[in-house]
Amino acid sequence: MERMNYKTLQARAKETTMNEKTGRYNRKKRFGKSIANKAPSLFLIILEQKLNDAGKSLKKVDTVAVKASQYNHLSNEYKKKNLSDRWTIIGEDRIQRDLYSAFLIMNVRDNLKEIDREQCFKHWEAFKYFHDQEITRLRKSHTRLLSSMGI
């Protein structure tokens, strides 16, 4: 998993910005309500307890070194993306950004500081297959979709 500081995600934006299209001020609202409703920190505490009971541990990657949301394993390049960009282009494929980040974190080396490209290439076809299956299932589903996934 990636280390996250949920407290900073709850805080309001410091700078006041203007929307170029409408000329109105942007809201300073961040993710406070979402974090309160989803309780990611509590989930991780419960998960860690269950893993400890099973004799396993939760591995925490170095978020700054790995930069999973910016990396492209095919080109071996890092490219910063906007938070609103929910999809990323990897080669010829359009991949959901968060699922791709999870794939990259799954393929981190034992030092938890760098991505193992060879592992990524080895597991890419299976990931792509299951990614496409899940995106298709979510789009066909009649349940409420996760807006944060961009579907």
Rank of each mutant, 00 (worst) to 15 (best):
I35T: 00
R139G: 00
Q10F: 01
F31G: 13
S101D: 03
A13Y: 11
H123R: 12
K113I: 01
K67L: 01
A13T: 05
Q119R: 00
N107Q: 06
R27E: 11
K14L: 11
D53A: 14
S148M: 03
D85K: 01
L138M: 10
G23P: 07
N19V: 02
L104N: 03
N107L: 00
E125S: 15
V66Q: 09
H73C: 01
T88P: 02
T143N: 13
Y6G: 01
Q49T: 08
K38T: 03
F127H: 03
W87V: 00
K7A: 15
E48Y: 06
G91Y: 06
G150H: 04
K79W: 10
G32W: 13
G23T: 03
F127Y: 00
F130P: 00
H73S: 04
M4R: 15
G150P: 07
E2R: 06
I135V: 12
G55T: 07
R27G: 13
K59A: 08
L104H: 00
R94A: 11
K140T: 02
T8V: 08
S69N: 15
A126C: 15
R137A: 15
F130S: 06
R109V: 08
W87T: 06
Y71H: 09
K59W: 02
K21D: 11
L74Q: 09
L99H: 09
D132C: 07
N52F: 11
R3E: 14
E15V: 07
K59D: 13
E125I: 05
E15S: 02
Q49D: 10
C120Q: 06
N76D: 15
R3D: 14
K38N: 02
D132F: 08
E2L: 04
D116L: 05
F127V: 05
Q49L: 07
S34Y: 12
N26F: 06
S34P: 01
K67A: 03
R137E: 06
S148N: 12
E77N: 15
I46N: 11
Q119F: 10
S34L: 05
R30V: 08
A39W: 06
L138P: 02
K67M: 11
K81V: 04
V66G: 04
T17K: 13
I135K: 01
L99Q: 10
Q133I: 04
N72P: 00
S147D: 09
F31A: 06
E15Q: 09
S148F: 08
N37V: 03
E77Y: 05
L104C: 10
F31N: 09
A11P: 05
W87H: 07
R27S: 15
E15Y: 07
H131D: 04
Y6R: 01
A39Y: 09
Y25E: 15
I151K: 01
N26L: 01
K56P: 00
H73F: 03
Y6C: 10
I89C: 00
K80Y: 12
G91K: 07
E15G: 03
M106D: 12
V61M: 04
R30A: 06
R144K: 13
H123K: 09
N107E: 11
D116T: 09
W124L: 11
E48N: 15
N5L: 04
L112I: 01
K56R: 08
G55A: 14
R86I: 00
G32A: 14
G91S: 10
T8K: 15
E15F: 03
